[in-house]
Write a protein that binds this DNA or RNA. Structure first.
Lengths: 222, 222
DNA sequence: CTCATTTAGTACAGAGGTGTTCGAGTTGTA
DNA sequence: TACAACTCGAACACCTCTGTACTAAATGAG
């Protein structure tokens, strides 16, 4: 029921005072920041980082889980907003390259938030929050399948899993200093394009990865 | 499965107060079992499951971390023992198929133990424990590269990461009931074989995945 | 058989976290 | 201005977990 002109409809009841709303925002910002630093950050840490009292925080979020859920939702909404400006039209292989380039940034940046969510929230909730992102990937993959660019002998779900899995694994490797950030998108793309080639077909050469990664399809409302 | 919570047993085949030795084994078994069920299992749970007092457990493992480390090592040793009996000779693609089939079982079964370890132990320790397994995969990949079966344009580390990552992701999906156990090895293999095909080359058809997964190549100790 | 090892059980000490209550002060909004 | 919404800080209650100390009993090994 939250009709927000800002597109990003968090469940923000409108009867709240301005300072309350401001604090909620500060708390969510702090939550994302703290959890990014330490997935086990306590409510105390987050409240302090937000510059509010712990009790105030509990006034807005009944439990720690609820807070983390909200932080996760906010993160995923930001991600979706970025993916929204990524051009997924044209050649599916090149589109996948662009999509990976954009997604990877987000996955890498917020991996610890996701980790925190994994520890606090039920798995299906996390999956649910990812729904929009998953659907974006899936629809691109389907388009590629229809166009004969991607193989059709693997379940769509598995292909999506593959995409997400490689991005997360790369994030892990970067965190462990086994990979450098710059090389990651190229590796993921090169791997995925081959992985999604049908047996009997020729693996395409990876796209040159030129910089045109966003060509916003003229943002409409949201 | 060796020891059940049973109170005090009465058997002593070994030297050095078989009493103690047996308890250590029971504790490790219980640790693996408990952590498999719940990665956050406490020392209390594990001691109870092992049928020993909590204090006894602390007599053998100074801290919880040390216990989890030992459980992890034991798990990985078991894994390595299984992989040791897996035939990694012959056509690299088929060998990879066999290796995946064997590894997948282990990854799937003990994913929660690994998760527990991730929460308690430093990342490099975990990497260290995986060393032998990683090296097995890597040497197979290298052999495939030399034989012209696998592409050479990706870092070896990344290829290993890809293998592990897909197995873990599949384990996740199975746990979430999005995939069935039986179809997983086929999916992973089909994905990997394509992923490791060089651009410009033709993706091979996946091997029929018949059951011959162990045929110990060269007799070593066992 | 005898003794050192090992165990169980209980109790204690401490740390850290979550969530609540309360009264009093502040600040937005009407 | 007046009132309700909001915040603050501290204290409180409660929980779970880790790790240690002590004593009395059992059990294996020589």
């Amino acid at each position: 029921m939250a009709r927000e002109p800002d597109g990003v409809g968090a469940e923000a009841p409108r009867a709240r005072r301005a300072d309350a709303r401001r604090n909620v925002e500060a708390i969510l910002d702090a939550a994302v920041a703290c959890l990014t630093r330490d997935p086990d950050a306590s409510v105390v840490d987050i409240a302090a980082a937000a510059g509010v009292g712990r009790v105030t925080l509990y006034g807005h979020f009944k439990t720690r889980a609820e807070l983390i859920d909200a932080a996760l939702v906010r993160t995923l909404q930001g991600a979706d907003r970025i993916l929204e400006t990524t051009d997924t039209t044209g050649d599916p292989a090149e589109a996948l390259t662009r999509l990976v380039a954009s997604s990877w940034q987000i996955v890498h940046q917020f991996r610890n938030v996701l980790l925190a969510a994994h520890r606090e929230l039920p798995a299906e909730r996390i999956r649910g929050v990812h729904d929009r992102v998953v659907r974006r990937i899936q629809s691109l993959l389907e388009r590629g399948q229809r166009g004969g660019v991607f193989r059709k002998d693997l379940p769509k779900r598995w292909m999506v899993t593959t995409v997400l899995s490689l991005m997360h694994a790369a994030a892990e490797d970067v965190a462990a200093a086994r990979l450098k950030v710059d090389q990651v998108p190229g590796l993921i793309t090169a791997t995925l394009l081959a992985a999604f080639t049908a047996p009997g077909a020729v693996v395409p050469a990876p796209a040159p990865a030129h910089d045109a990664r966003s060509r916003a399809s003229s943002a409409r409302s949201a």
